[in-house]
Nucleic acid binder design. Structure first.
Length: 693
DNA sequence: ATTCGGACGGCC
DNA sequence: GCCGTCCGAATT
């Protein structure tokens, strides 16, 4: 050791009679300490840390700015949460540098980030990554685009000109717009009519709601599942609000465009933000409305830890910021039904008779052998005669949509004769066909050989439905004079013209028709209904009603026909055209089964030994008074992440919804204790996962 | 007396 | 997770 370092550090003596003096002789410059949310991955370090603000940085250090700090000896990124004149710590380090003085993490969003982290048993650092896009220095320094914003009077005039649009026939619809315009914060579960007419134009409705909110001097946040819906919403907002009034935030934007849109919002240059799930955290000042389209779409489940769901993020946000909420969809999820049952949302939908008159006429066609058409080409395409008739009639009036299952859904099998789904003889799991001629069970990967149908004894199986390519080919033969167009996955059409054509599309990739389809044929019914998922029925209805929404209203002859077993309750629900009642029943079933949203479920996933340790530790935590011990489900096998060497399992803990926060806190405590103790093995925790098994 | 390494505690 | 410190064993 050198001579120099042996000399003790200089100690500055502070006169004790000076009340403004700070300990350790630090210069008092008023606001000299910053509480920083440091980007550390460890659960037990998930809290703010204080740093001294060197006087040279005093100007730039503001709440919400990005900084670099020394933490455990290393440089790390962080956000300043608060600037204060004191600290409770005696060994504070100085801030290393200010990355940017731009206050990108507003106090409101910081509060939301904390709340989201707490709700999903995650850390602030994980959630803030979802909320604030990476900095782009050039964009930050560039001159912002000049925008001409309409005044409140102009906005009121526009809202008046447009009228209530798709809310027109609605019970409570016009009142909703009026309340938003008065600066109130109504919350609605909006059920527009699934049809290609104004009554079904959700994007127009969203734009009108944003305009009414803007007229009250407040901002709006409008969220949709994907870029296709975003394009539609962009068009509607441009028409109703004007192109200067809003920005669009989504993950397809490059770093520069993304940061530019974000800055326009955080700087208050725009008060309306539209986008996909990451935009749910966008810093809209004085938020008056959050709107969410089609909350059942699984794109709303964030794939990164802590796996928050956009619907709950927005619900949390509307509550925290006293904003209105508009959750719109053609189908209705059990979760929205739950929010309605708890009177957090009120249903807004046209009167029953208006709804039924405007909606395309729903029909179902049996898919059993006897119902097939006699026409040999139709027979080859496996088309029931009712479907053949609907297609023929529809083609006389315009394009006909044919919804077929996505390729991924084909990888299941049924008995050739009685259509009983094939299950693994060893562990009863469903089977999949990962590649041609290879049949494995989905849980354990057992190769399936020597299968025999438990119902009829047949030894042969087949794919239950043909895919898009085969369907298109067969339809071409059945309708030789008609153009057959395809839209799926990568090769996707946006719009088809009015000429008669058969448009074969996978769910979610259906192009819109310029004036609506004459008819829709939903061919994937039986396959969707065979899925062993808790949400199979809900998801099937969501897809059918989303496809139905592209068809002309029933008053203009529109028809939607689903092919499947007529006795299926889900097909019957389709026929009944009652998304609200259907979701209420679904919620009732979830309640009876003790599943979310009626209960809170925390799934712990990882190598079996680690999962067992974590679950045991959670169960060993002391329960709050009156709280019951959780119900334990599992462990059951679950897919391991790509690079894991171990097999993974999942164990789920379930408690009544009211005790959910307590359970999540206990889980979080266990995770924090484990990282502090450096326990071996990591787990993944999912609160209310969308797939339950 | 000095150096090395592994375990452990704290991170502002 | 990573760094710094502390303590015991090995090395001179």
């Amino acid at each position: 050791m050198s001579q120099l370092s042996a000399i003790p550090p200089t100690i500055t003596v502070v006169p004790t009679d000076d009340p403004t003096a700070l300990p350790l002789g630090l210069p008092d410059a008023g606001l000299s300490y910053a509480a920083v949310a440091v980007d550390v991955p460890l659960a037990h370090l998930d809290r703010p840390f204080d740093y001294r603000v060197p006087s040279a940085m005093l100007e730039e250090v503001v709440p919400g700015c990005r900084v670099k700090v020394r933490f455990a000896g290393r440089l790390r990124d962080g956000f300043v949460l608060e600037v204060r004149d004191h600290t409770d710590h005696d060994r504070v380090q100085p801030l290393e540098r200010v990355v940017s003085p731009e206050p990108v993490l507003t106090p409101t969003v910081a509060g939301l980030v904390r709340a989201v982290a707490d709700h999903w048993a995650g850390s602030f650092a994980d959630v803030v990554r979802l909320a604030v896009p990476p900095r782009h220095a050039t964009t930050e320094k560039a001159e912002p685009r000049q925008r001409k914003l309409p005044t409140a009077d102009e906005l009121r005039a526009r809202v008046g000109e447009h009228g209530p649009g798709p809310f027109a026939p609605g019970v409570g619809g016009p009142a909703l717009l009026a309340a938003l315009g008065r600066g109130e914060s109504p919350r609605a579960a909006w059920q527009p009519v699934p049809c290609a007419a104004e009554a079904g134009d959700w994007a127009y409705g969203f734009a009108l709601a944003a305009a009414a909110t803007a007229a009250s001097g407040r901002g709006s946040l409008l969220i949709v599942p994907d870029v296709t819906d975003l394009a539609r919403l962009t068009a509607a907002c441009t028409e109703v609000l004007g192109a200067d009034t809003f920005v669009s935030l989504h993950s397809d934007l490059g770093p520069s465009a993304r940061y530019r849109a974000f800055l326009a919002a955080v700087r208050g240059q725009v008060r309306v933000v539209i986008g996909t799930r990451a935009a749910a955290f966008a810093p809209v000042t004085d938020l008056g409305l959050v709107a969410l389209w089609d909350d059942g779409d699984d794109l709303y489940a964030e794939p990164r830890a802590p796996y928050p769901h956009t619907r709950e993020v927005l619900a949390l946000r509307a509550s925290r910021e006293q904003a209105g909420a508009l959750f719109g969809s053609y189908a209705r999820t059990a979760e929205v039904a739950d929010l309605v049952a708890r009177d957090w949302l009120r249903t807004v939908t046209p009167p029953r008779e208006v709804f039924r008159r405007l909606a395309p006429r729903p029909r179902i066609a049996s898919d059993d052998e006897r119902a097939l058409d006699r026409d040999p080409a139709a027979r080859a395409a496996r088309l029931p005669r009712d479907v053949f008739a609907v297609m023929r009639a529809g083609l006389a009036a315009g394009p006909v949509l044919v919804q077929v299952p996505r390729a991924g859904y084909l990888s299941s099998l049924v008995c050739r004769t009685c259509r009983t789904p094939v299950h693994c003889p060893r562990c009863s799991s469903p089977v999949s066909v990962p590649e041609p001629r290879v049949v494995r069970c989905t849980w354990a990967g057992h190769p399936v050989t020597g299968w025999e149908c438990p119902e009829c004894g047949d030894r042969h199986w087949r794919a239950p439905v043909v895919g898009a390519a085969r369907t298109a080919e067969e339809l071409g033969k059945a309708f030789p004079q008609v153009a057959v167009r395809r839209s799926s996955g990568e090769r996707r059409l946006d719009l088809v013209e009015d000429e008669p054509a058969l448009v074969v599309a996978t769910p979610g990739a259906e192009p819109r028709a310029a004036h609506g389809y004459a008819a829709a044929v939903l061919l994937d019914a039986s396959l969707l209904l065979q899925r062993m998922d808790l949400r199979a029925a809900e998801e099937a209805l969501r897809r059918w009603w989303n496809a139905t929404a592209l068809v002309r209203p029933g008053t203009a002859g529109g028809t939607a026909i689903a092919v499947g077993p007529p006795e299926s309750p889900t097909l019957q629900a389709f026929l009944r055209q009652d998304p609200v009642g259907t979701a209420e029943r679904e919620l009732g079933e979830r309640q009876a089964a003790g599943f979310p949203p009626a209960a809170r479920m925390v799934a712990v996933e990882g190598p079996s030994a680690t999962v067992a340790e974590v679950v045991d530790a959670v169960l060993a935590e002391t329960l709050p008074p009156d709280a019951a011990a959780p119900t334990v489900l599992g462990p059951g096998p679950v897919a391991a992440p790509a690079h894991s060497e171990d097999d993974w399992v999942r164990t789920s803990l379930t408690v009544p919804a009211a005790q959910g926060a307590g359970l999540v806190t206990r889980v979080r405590t266990v995770l924090a204790t484990r990282t502090a103790y450096k326990a071996e093995g990591t787990v993944r925790v999912r609160v209310d996962p969308i797939s339950i098994s």
